[in-house]
Design a protein around this nucleic acid. Structure first.
Lengths: 198, 198
DNA sequence: ACCTGAACACCGTTCAAGT
DNA sequence: ACCTGAACACCGTTCAAGT
């Protein structure tokens, strides 16, 4: 790992430091001053690269979406001839990302970022991700795996299904009567298959 | 509205003040010191009633769940002979609550509360709410409206579906190609009907 | 162009003291 | 029992100054 800031790429070093603090101390422990310290600069140095804390959070979220997109892409392109498998593997990848990057996932989706539309690269990657979901849904519809509704609406439905269960689980809102018997992965898959069998 | 703190029920006055600040300034604007000021007491007075900020947040979330439960209950008991209508009206009530109490909803579900299991009244009302969902799901299953799977699993599926779409919409993650044509209410209903027709 | 250090307003939390 | 005010460590942000 070549970390050569000091006189190098401080902007990315700050993002990386943020991700690490997030993983180690959670959303509540993320402060600009700690990020600066971890990157080895003074507490006001970040302001040369980000206008405020929200912008750093936007950059971290954008980074998270880039990674999520890459993992979804990888899962999907491994099964290009089998739409149903693409859907299932994509869902697995989504759940896996959420569980492996818990606090990054939280910061991406939990309303900490307040004016997301102001950050164009965030908007870009998040709508690119949405389009990826639409593509898989469309392929599934063409293969008769998902019902024939408008693909974007169906994409919201599928993504919402997965995202909702994952979110409720992370919030501790899924009853232990369910969690004792099934993993989150299983619960999500069972639910998705309900959308498929129709 | 009889507000008679000063020498009265400060604990509830603080919760109420918190809800108001949440509605007015959002999650980011909620501070203990502002809550105290709005309730007309010194900044350290809250510590006589809540051990820390997390506890106040837990109390506000609990209050939110109580209200959500009441509204779900009302929607459901209006149609006690028609399970499908109970489901649909319950879903509407959930979406309505989220949109009318945006920041309370966020605080209830967005990971701001960190050790939710430590707050027994929060756990009580949230599991009571889950049981309500299970009941409606079970009634639907008995009426052949929802497929015959374990009711608690099915409840997670249904709740997750609704919660996920609402969450994505509040996060600005639902594509404008969808939102231009449909209200959130409609999107959720279309998705739920997909679970019903199977 | 990029970074530092002092400064300011704000925050959560503690604690001795007041009633 | 409940509340106040001073104090402490921490935070986001600004700005004059350094290289």
């Amino acid at each position: 790992m070549p970390k050569k800031y000091h006189h190098g790429d401080l902007k990315n070093a700050l993002i990386q430091a943020g991700v690490e603090i997030l993983a180690k101390e959670g959303v509540g422990g993320l402060s600009l001053r700690k990020v600066a310290q971890r990157a080895g600069v003074s507490h006001s140095a970040p302001y040369a690269h980000f206008p405020d804390k929200q912008s750093l959070i936007a950059a971290i979220s954008t980074e998270g979406f880039n990674q999520l997109y890459a993992e979804l892409e990888a899962a999907i392109s491994s099964h290009s001839k089998n739409p149903k498998k693409q859907l299932i593997e994509g869902v697995q990848a989504y759940v896996h990302f959420a569980m492996e990057n818990l606090d990054t996932f939280k910061i991406m989706f939990s309303g900490v970022l307040e004016k997301e539309k102001d950050y164009s690269s965030f908007v870009d990657i998040s709508s690119k991700t949405f389009k990826l979901v639409v593509e898989v849904v469309q392929a599934c519809q063409n293969a008769g795996v998902l019902p024939a509704a408008p693909a974007d609406l169906m994409a919201v439905s599928v993504w919402g299904q997965v995202h909702g269960i994952v979110s409720l689980a992370l919030e501790g809102q899924v009853s232990h009567t369910v969690l004792d018997k099934h993993s989150i992965q299983d619960i999500v898959l069972v639910s998705i298959e309900q959308l498929i069998n129709s």
